[in-house]
Amino acid sequence: MPAVSMTVNGKPVSGEVEARTLLVQFLRENLRLTGTHVGCDTSQCGACVVHINGIAAKSCTTLALQCEGATITTIEGLAAADGTLHPMQEAFRDNHGLQCGYCTPGMIMSALDIVRRNGNELDEHTIREQLDGNICRCTGYHNIVKAIAAGAKTMAR
């Protein structure tokens, strides 16, 4: 089987995978990083979003081997070593931005990409439009949008 190595949440990792192994499978099954979810497996729901070299991508639509040498960040990589939540995570908690929590890792990783592309002052319209690729089955969008606006602001501090 082909070998693959990459940096995940700051740590170098490697493993043997089939060529068809998806990045999300590698993260969940090889590395046991089960924070990244699979909601649809058809590239639509965004539950599997991680950052590949700093850019948000659907890890169910990316092969592990495509990430050879890449730097990956998952939801597990956001909080500080002492457990202090990332401001965007904290904002989801403060604003009740999750219900069952299934979509939340993807929402937060996508939210950080929205900040990367659009800055820290986000209006509601921008956030809603940019969340096009993330589905919340609990349909708690109102508070997700509030959380992202608040999290983005705190990140600027």
Binding site: G46, V49, A57, D113, I114, R117, Q130, D132, G133
Partner: peptide, 9 residues
């Protein structure tokens, strides 16, 4: 095209 993550790839 599609959504932001699709446009990223």
């Amino acid at each position: 095209v599609g959504d932001p993550q699709v446009r990223n790839r």
